[in-house]
Amino acid sequence: MRKRFFEASARERVHGVVDTDSFHEFLPPEARVSSPHMVMLEQPAAFDDGIVVGAATLDGRPVLVAAQEGAFLGGAIGEVHGAKLVGLIERARAERPAAVVILFDSGGVRLHEANAGLIAVSEIIRAVLGARAEGLRFIGLIGGAGGCFGGTGLIARCCDALVMSEEGRLAMSGPEVIETVRGVEEFDSRDRALVWRVTGGKHRYLLGEADAFVEDDIEAFRAAAIHLLDTPAEFSLESVEREHARLAERWQRFGSSTDAPEIWQALGVPADADVAMMNADEFVAMAAHCPGRNA
Protein backbone atom coordinates (compact mmCIF):
# COMPACT_ATOMS: atom_id res chain seq x y z
CA MET A 1 0.00 0.00 0.00
CA ARG A 2 1.29 3.42 -0.86
CA LYS A 3 2.39 5.64 1.98
CA ARG A 4 1.55 9.24 1.23
CA PHE A 5 4.37 11.73 1.48
CA PHE A 6 1.87 14.60 1.87
CA GLU A 7 0.44 13.46 5.17
CA ALA A 8 3.50 11.79 6.69
CA SER A 9 5.56 13.46 9.41
CA ALA A 10 9.13 14.58 8.73
CA ARG A 11 10.52 11.55 10.55
CA GLU A 12 8.23 9.13 8.71
CA ARG A 13 9.32 10.64 5.41
CA VAL A 14 13.02 10.32 6.22
CA HIS A 15 12.64 6.71 7.29
CA GLY A 16 10.68 5.92 4.15
CA VAL A 17 13.01 7.67 1.71
CA VAL A 18 16.35 6.28 2.89
CA ASP A 19 17.32 2.59 3.11
CA THR A 20 15.42 0.72 5.80
CA ASP A 21 16.93 1.12 9.27
CA SER A 22 19.87 3.08 7.90
CA PHE A 23 18.99 6.46 9.40
CA HIS A 24 21.08 7.80 12.24
CA GLU A 25 19.72 11.06 13.64
CA PHE A 26 21.98 13.88 14.81
CA LEU A 27 20.67 15.95 17.71
CA PRO A 28 17.60 13.71 18.16
CA PRO A 29 14.55 14.90 20.12
CA GLU A 30 15.96 13.72 23.47
CA ALA A 31 18.94 16.05 22.95
CA ARG A 32 16.38 18.86 23.33
CA VAL A 33 18.18 21.24 21.03
CA SER A 34 15.18 23.47 20.54
CA SER A 35 14.42 27.14 20.10
CA PRO A 36 15.28 29.44 23.01
CA HIS A 37 13.00 32.09 21.47
CA MET A 38 9.79 30.07 21.62
CA VAL A 39 10.17 29.58 25.37
CA MET A 40 10.66 33.32 25.85
CA LEU A 41 7.51 33.91 23.83
CA GLU A 42 5.60 31.44 26.01
CA GLN A 43 4.96 29.15 23.05
CA PRO A 44 5.32 25.37 23.06
CA ALA A 45 8.56 24.31 21.42
CA ALA A 46 9.38 21.22 19.40
CA PHE A 47 12.07 18.91 20.74
CA ASP A 48 13.88 19.03 17.40
CA ASP A 49 12.89 22.60 16.46
CA GLY A 50 10.96 21.26 13.50
CA ILE A 51 13.80 19.67 11.55
CA VAL A 52 15.18 16.16 11.50
CA VAL A 53 18.84 15.81 10.42
CA GLY A 54 21.07 12.78 10.16
CA ALA A 55 23.05 10.30 8.11
CA ALA A 56 21.76 7.34 6.17
CA THR A 57 22.30 5.29 3.08
CA LEU A 58 20.26 5.64 -0.08
CA ASP A 59 20.45 2.65 -2.36
CA GLY A 60 23.47 1.65 -0.32
CA ARG A 61 25.30 4.93 -0.77
CA PRO A 62 26.01 7.34 2.06
CA VAL A 63 23.85 10.47 2.20
CA LEU A 64 23.13 13.19 4.70
CA VAL A 65 19.46 13.95 5.10
CA ALA A 66 17.33 16.77 6.50
CA ALA A 67 13.54 16.92 6.73
CA GLN A 68 11.46 19.88 7.79
CA GLU A 69 8.30 19.27 9.85
CA GLY A 70 5.63 21.32 8.11
CA ALA A 71 3.11 20.82 10.90
CA PHE A 72 5.26 22.66 13.46
CA LEU A 73 4.87 26.40 12.78
CA GLY A 74 4.50 25.67 9.07
CA GLY A 75 8.02 24.29 8.96
CA ALA A 76 9.33 27.81 9.35
CA ILE A 77 13.06 28.38 9.73
CA GLY A 78 14.20 29.66 13.09
CA GLU A 79 17.68 30.01 14.55
CA VAL A 80 18.20 26.44 15.76
CA HIS A 81 16.32 24.91 12.83
CA GLY A 82 18.60 26.83 10.47
CA ALA A 83 21.75 26.02 12.42
CA LYS A 84 20.97 22.28 12.27
CA LEU A 85 20.75 22.49 8.48
CA VAL A 86 23.92 24.59 8.16
CA GLY A 87 25.72 22.15 10.43
CA LEU A 88 24.58 19.22 8.30
CA ILE A 89 25.91 20.89 5.15
CA GLU A 90 29.22 21.69 6.82
CA ARG A 91 29.45 18.07 7.82
CA ALA A 92 28.79 17.08 4.22
CA ARG A 93 31.73 19.18 3.09
CA ALA A 94 33.91 17.16 5.43
CA GLU A 95 32.38 13.72 4.83
CA ARG A 96 31.67 13.97 1.09
CA PRO A 97 28.48 11.83 0.95
CA ALA A 98 26.92 10.88 -2.38
CA ALA A 99 24.36 13.64 -1.83
CA VAL A 100 22.64 15.86 0.68
CA VAL A 101 18.92 15.14 0.48
CA ILE A 102 16.61 17.83 1.86
CA LEU A 103 12.90 17.18 2.36
CA PHE A 104 11.46 20.68 2.23
CA ASP A 105 8.18 21.54 3.95
CA SER A 106 8.30 25.16 5.00
CA GLY A 107 6.68 28.53 4.47
CA GLY A 108 10.00 30.36 4.96
CA VAL A 109 11.34 32.35 7.87
CA ARG A 110 9.81 31.86 11.32
CA LEU A 111 8.19 35.16 12.27
CA HIS A 112 8.78 34.55 15.99
CA GLU A 113 12.50 34.88 15.45
CA ALA A 114 12.58 36.72 12.17
CA ASN A 115 16.09 38.18 12.17
CA ALA A 116 17.68 34.95 13.27
CA GLY A 117 15.62 33.13 10.68
CA LEU A 118 16.63 35.50 7.88
CA ILE A 119 20.28 35.14 8.79
CA ALA A 120 19.83 31.38 8.90
CA VAL A 121 18.39 31.37 5.38
CA SER A 122 21.36 33.29 4.00
CA GLU A 123 23.78 31.02 5.87
CA ILE A 124 22.09 27.96 4.43
CA ILE A 125 22.21 29.36 0.90
CA ARG A 126 25.87 30.22 1.27
CA ALA A 127 26.61 26.75 2.65
CA VAL A 128 24.70 25.04 -0.16
CA LEU A 129 26.44 27.02 -2.88
CA GLY A 130 29.81 26.58 -1.22
CA ALA A 131 29.32 22.85 -0.98
CA ARG A 132 28.07 22.62 -4.56
CA ALA A 133 31.17 24.50 -5.71
CA GLU A 134 33.14 21.70 -4.08
CA GLY A 135 31.21 19.17 -6.13
CA LEU A 136 28.65 18.07 -3.55
CA ARG A 137 25.20 17.18 -4.81
CA PHE A 138 21.95 18.52 -3.32
CA ILE A 139 18.62 16.88 -4.00
CA GLY A 140 15.40 18.53 -2.75
CA LEU A 141 12.09 16.73 -2.28
CA ILE A 142 8.92 18.83 -2.17
CA GLY A 143 5.56 17.27 -1.43
CA GLY A 144 4.46 18.36 2.04
CA ALA A 145 1.38 20.28 3.10
CA GLY A 146 3.38 23.40 3.98
CA GLY A 147 4.84 23.73 0.49
CA CYS A 148 8.15 25.44 -0.09
CA PHE A 149 7.91 29.21 0.04
CA GLY A 150 9.88 32.32 0.92
CA GLY A 151 13.45 31.72 2.03
CA THR A 152 12.90 27.99 1.82
CA GLY A 153 11.89 28.40 -1.83
CA LEU A 154 15.20 30.16 -2.45
CA ILE A 155 17.15 27.38 -0.78
CA ALA A 156 15.32 24.76 -2.80
CA ARG A 157 16.19 26.49 -6.07
CA CYS A 158 19.87 26.45 -5.05
CA CYS A 159 19.83 22.64 -5.10
CA ASP A 160 21.04 20.60 -8.06
CA ALA A 161 17.74 18.90 -8.56
CA LEU A 162 14.19 18.92 -7.19
CA VAL A 163 11.60 16.17 -7.01
CA MET A 164 8.00 17.29 -6.68
CA SER A 165 4.57 15.77 -6.43
CA GLU A 166 1.45 17.52 -7.61
CA GLU A 167 0.59 18.34 -3.99
CA GLY A 168 3.95 20.00 -3.43
CA ARG A 169 4.14 23.74 -3.99
CA LEU A 170 7.13 25.92 -4.74
CA ALA A 171 7.27 29.70 -5.02
CA MET A 172 8.94 32.78 -3.66
CA SER A 173 6.01 34.66 -2.10
CA GLY A 174 3.30 32.47 -0.66
CA PRO A 175 -0.32 32.91 -1.80
CA GLU A 176 -1.41 34.76 1.35
CA VAL A 177 1.56 37.10 1.08
CA ILE A 178 0.74 37.99 -2.52
CA GLU A 179 -2.89 38.60 -1.64
CA THR A 180 -1.94 40.77 1.33
CA VAL A 181 0.50 42.85 -0.66
CA ARG A 182 -1.25 43.08 -4.03
CA GLY A 183 -4.91 42.49 -3.22
CA VAL A 184 -7.36 39.69 -3.82
CA GLU A 185 -7.85 40.77 -7.45
CA GLU A 186 -4.20 39.97 -8.10
CA PHE A 187 -4.28 36.64 -6.31
CA ASP A 188 -7.08 34.96 -4.38
CA SER A 189 -5.25 32.79 -1.88
CA ARG A 190 -8.46 30.92 -0.99
CA ASP A 191 -8.88 29.81 -4.58
CA ARG A 192 -7.06 26.57 -3.96
CA ALA A 193 -7.23 25.45 -7.56
CA LEU A 194 -5.50 28.68 -8.60
CA VAL A 195 -2.87 28.31 -5.88
CA TRP A 196 -1.97 24.80 -6.96
CA ARG A 197 -2.12 25.65 -10.66
CA VAL A 198 0.54 28.31 -10.32
CA THR A 199 2.70 26.90 -7.52
CA GLY A 200 2.05 23.15 -7.66
CA GLY A 201 4.35 20.40 -8.81
CA LYS A 202 2.91 20.02 -12.29
CA HIS A 203 3.45 23.68 -13.12
CA ARG A 204 6.96 23.61 -11.72
CA TYR A 205 7.78 20.50 -13.70
CA LEU A 206 6.50 21.98 -16.95
CA LEU A 207 8.56 25.11 -16.28
CA GLY A 208 11.61 22.94 -15.78
CA GLU A 209 12.13 23.89 -12.15
CA ALA A 210 11.35 20.43 -10.86
CA ASP A 211 13.56 17.76 -12.41
CA ALA A 212 11.36 14.84 -11.49
CA PHE A 213 7.63 14.56 -11.01
CA VAL A 214 6.23 11.77 -8.86
CA GLU A 215 3.01 10.49 -7.34
CA ASP A 216 2.33 11.44 -3.72
CA ASP A 217 4.05 8.33 -2.47
CA ILE A 218 7.14 8.12 -0.26
CA GLU A 219 8.43 5.16 -2.28
CA ALA A 220 8.16 7.21 -5.50
CA PHE A 221 10.12 10.07 -3.93
CA ARG A 222 12.76 7.56 -2.85
CA ALA A 223 13.04 6.09 -6.36
CA ALA A 224 13.36 9.57 -7.89
CA ALA A 225 16.03 10.57 -5.36
CA ILE A 226 18.01 7.41 -6.12
CA HIS A 227 17.79 8.14 -9.82
CA LEU A 228 19.09 11.67 -9.27
CA LEU A 229 22.17 10.41 -7.41
CA ASP A 230 23.78 9.69 -10.77
CA THR A 231 22.45 12.34 -13.13
CA PRO A 232 25.03 14.87 -14.26
CA ALA A 233 25.34 17.84 -11.92
CA GLU A 234 27.14 20.99 -12.89
CA PHE A 235 27.78 24.11 -10.87
CA SER A 236 29.94 26.83 -12.31
CA LEU A 237 29.81 30.50 -13.16
CA GLU A 238 28.68 29.54 -16.67
CA SER A 239 25.88 27.33 -15.39
CA VAL A 240 24.62 30.13 -13.12
CA GLU A 241 24.77 32.65 -15.96
CA ARG A 242 22.95 30.24 -18.24
CA GLU A 243 20.23 29.87 -15.64
CA HIS A 244 19.93 33.65 -15.28
CA ALA A 245 19.62 34.02 -19.02
CA ARG A 246 16.97 31.33 -19.07
CA LEU A 247 14.98 33.08 -16.36
CA ALA A 248 15.27 36.43 -18.15
CA GLU A 249 13.98 34.83 -21.31
CA ARG A 250 11.13 33.20 -19.42
CA TRP A 251 10.17 36.52 -17.94
CA GLN A 252 10.14 38.03 -21.42
CA ARG A 253 7.98 35.27 -22.71
CA PHE A 254 5.51 34.73 -19.89
CA GLY A 255 5.70 37.87 -17.75
CA SER A 256 2.29 39.03 -18.90
CA SER A 257 0.56 35.65 -18.57
CA THR A 258 -2.30 35.71 -16.09
CA ASP A 259 -2.67 32.03 -15.31
CA ALA A 260 -0.68 28.83 -15.58
CA PRO A 261 -2.64 27.07 -18.36
CA GLU A 262 -1.73 29.94 -20.74
CA ILE A 263 1.91 29.09 -20.15
CA TRP A 264 1.33 25.36 -20.46
CA GLN A 265 -0.25 25.75 -23.85
CA ALA A 266 2.58 27.97 -25.01
CA LEU A 267 4.94 25.21 -23.88
CA GLY A 268 3.07 22.73 -26.04
CA VAL A 269 0.54 21.15 -23.70
CA PRO A 270 -2.48 20.22 -25.85
CA ALA A 271 -5.42 22.55 -25.21
CA ASP A 272 -7.72 19.61 -24.46
CA ALA A 273 -5.34 17.91 -22.02
CA ASP A 274 -6.89 17.42 -18.59
CA VAL A 275 -3.62 18.18 -16.83
CA ALA A 276 -5.14 18.19 -13.35
CA MET A 277 -6.48 14.66 -13.59
CA MET A 278 -3.40 13.02 -15.10
CA ASN A 279 -1.51 10.66 -12.84
CA ALA A 280 2.26 11.04 -12.61
CA ASP A 281 3.09 8.62 -15.43
CA GLU A 282 0.58 10.14 -17.84
CA PHE A 283 1.69 13.63 -16.97
CA VAL A 284 5.40 12.94 -17.36
CA ALA A 285 4.73 11.19 -20.68
CA MET A 286 2.74 14.17 -21.90
CA ALA A 287 5.38 16.64 -20.72
CA ALA A 288 8.02 14.67 -22.63
CA HIS A 289 6.19 15.62 -25.80
CA CYS A 290 5.99 19.31 -24.95
CA PRO A 291 8.50 21.01 -27.23
CA GLY A 292 8.66 24.08 -25.01
CA ARG A 293 9.34 22.35 -21.72
CA ASN A 294 12.68 23.47 -20.44
CA ALA A 295 13.92 20.14 -19.20
Partner: peptide
Protein backbone atom coordinates in the same frame (compact mmCIF):
# COMPACT_ATOMS: atom_id res chain seq x y z
CA UNK B 1 15.82 4.01 23.22
CA UNK B 2 13.79 7.23 23.45
CA UNK B 3 10.62 7.42 21.38
CA UNK B 4 8.88 10.49 19.94
CA UNK B 5 5.35 10.57 18.54
CA UNK B 6 3.10 13.43 17.44
CA UNK B 7 3.86 17.00 16.46
CA UNK B 8 3.71 20.31 18.29
CA UNK B 9 0.83 21.65 16.22
CA UNK B 10 -2.62 23.06 16.87
CA UNK B 11 -4.94 20.43 18.35
CA UNK B 12 -2.02 18.06 18.62
CA UNK B 13 0.93 17.32 20.89
CA UNK B 14 4.31 15.64 20.78
CA UNK B 15 5.22 13.04 23.34
CA UNK B 16 8.80 12.07 24.16
CA UNK B 17 9.32 8.89 26.17
CA UNK B 18 12.65 8.14 27.86
Amino acid sequence: KPVLVGVTASGNCEVLVE
